[in-house]
Design a binder for these strands. Structure first.
Length: 418
DNA sequence: TCTGGGGTCCTAGGGCGA
DNA sequence: TCTGTCGCCCTAGGACCC
């Protein structure tokens, strides 16, 4: 048996845990730079579509008295790990699928009452964190996604827990689920399938294996089998990342080379820190920048470039040097740039380093990086900067509605007046 | 004024050596 | 030396996820 546990409207729920006066009130959380809406409480869903650009909905926020928050990843990350820790009390097989979701595998639980188990999990998370969750049990991962959807859609009847444990329930659930809502079927495939009059998940499972294999690749076929109740998708153990990216939309627009260079250098430093954290090197990096695609009235330009490093590295000094070189090649004067990013690729473990015949890393870099990381850990991020990042200026994200880091910073801990 | 950020997997097709 | 074929590797692009 698999279970999919999903936190309801996760970011909005995290904000509400520490502001109980907002329970049953509409709440939304915005993306970086307060750009668009990335989470909505149930009450907000009827007013605000997912991904809505915040500036276009300002009036509706006011009119409907919607409580708006900037995203507070320190808080959400911490709340997420609390939820995951509590879930691991129920089974050792936990696959953290995303910040707000986890697959659990219950092997050897045949004699347990799964419904009771689900109810216990629901209570445990609710008491331990205050986050509302939905739990779907089923014999395969894809079906547990379906089951979870039912639990979420009908909270009154299911009390947040639903179990698919018979052929009858499986078919009923698949007939209920619209094809575009099936996990693993995105917009493109949904459109193609609907054109063939396939409207539900059940109708999808009636297609022939050959057709699905040919038109949706082995990925689609695996999904079909999983929905048929044949376990095909297994639990996955997280390995190291295969690429690491730091990309940002600028608050305004930038046109000066040095300004952009400062930003991109910071992205490189951030990527190199992430590399060191997972003990990897990269041997390739991509830098991109582009203008604001939404501003049809302005001249558009965008380009990316991939650079091979001379030797595998995770040194902030090396990577800033490379991105500066790369940026010089793609930067063109006279444009208003809106977004840029650095992506490092070709990742290998630190201890399996391929040496270069002619070039090698400056032996002072590694110990220096260790010290920098240590200082930044002790005194807060970005206390130690590299010259290319500019010492005087502080690039700040727009975060006008940021809540306190209640659970990760002592100075911002919640106060209770009695 | 103002529209997020970060990932994974798979396939087709070309280059290339055996 | 030329040509065909096979299999491996790489890359770009498509599709998906949160």
């Amino acid at each position: 048996m698999f279970a999919l546990v999903d936190c309801n409207n996760f970011y909005a729920s995290c904000e509400r845990v520490f502001r109980p006066n907002l329970n049953s009130k509409p709440v939304v959380v915005l993306s970086n730079n307060d750009g668009c809406v990335i989470a909505r409480s149930n009450e907000a869903k009827k007013f605000i579509p997912m991904g809505a650009p915040a500036f276009k909905f300002k009036e509706i926020f006011q009119k409907e008295q919607i409580h708006v928050f900037s995203s507070n990843y320190a808080l959400y990350g911490d709340m997420s790990s609390r939820v995951m820790n509590l879930l691991s009390e129920f089974t050792p097989d936990v696959e953290v699928y995303s910040i707000d979701e986890a697959f659990l595998k219950f092997h050897g639980f045949d004699l347990f009452n799964i419904q009771d188990l689900g109810n216990q999990m629901y209570k445990r998370i609710s008491r331990g964190t205050g986050i509302p969750i939905s739990i779907g049990f089923a014999p395969t991962k894809a079906l547990s996604k379906v089951s979870n959807r039912i639990a979420k859609k009908y909270p009154e009847q299911t009390k947040g827990v639903y179990v698919i444990d018979s052929e009858e329930k499986r078919i009923k659930a698949l007939k209920w689920l619209k094809i575009e809502d099936v996990w693993g079927i995105g917009r493109r495939h949904a459109k193609r399938l609907k054109a063939l009059n396939i409207k539900s998940a059940y109708e999808f499972t009636l297609l022939s294996d050959e057709w699905v294999r040919k038109n949706m690749s082995v990925v689609g076929l695996r999904l079909k089998h999983d929905l048929e109740g044949k376990p095909t998708l297994g639990m996955e153990t997280p390995g190291n990342k295969k690429m690491i990216a730091t990309t940002r939309t600028f608050e305004g627009m930038l046109s000066d080379f040095d300004d952009i260079k400062e930003r991109v250098s910071s992205f490189a430093v951030s990527c190199s820190e992430k590399l060191r954290r997972q003990k990897s090197h990269c041997n390739m990096l991509m830098v991109f920048l582009h203008t604001n695609w939404y501003r049809k009235d302005l001249q558009q330009y965008g380009k990316n470039i991939i650079i091979q490093t001379e030797y595998p590295t995770n040194s902030s000094i090396d990577l800033t040097r490379y991105v500066t070189k790369a940026l010089k090649k793609i930067y063109k004067e006279g444009y208003q740039y809106k977004k840029a990013g650095v992506i490092v690729m070709g990742l290998t473990p630190e201890n399996q380093k391929q040496l270069s015949l002619f070039n090698s890393e400056n032996p002072k870099h590694q110990p220096l990086m260790k010290v920098v990381d240590k200082l930044n850990r002790s005194y807060g991020n970005n206390k130690i900067k590299f010259a290319s990042q500019s010492l005087g200026r502080q690039w700040k994200m727009k975060q006008e509605k940021l809540s306190p880091r209640y659970t990760t910073n002592l100075n911002e801990i919640i106060t209770v007046n009695v």
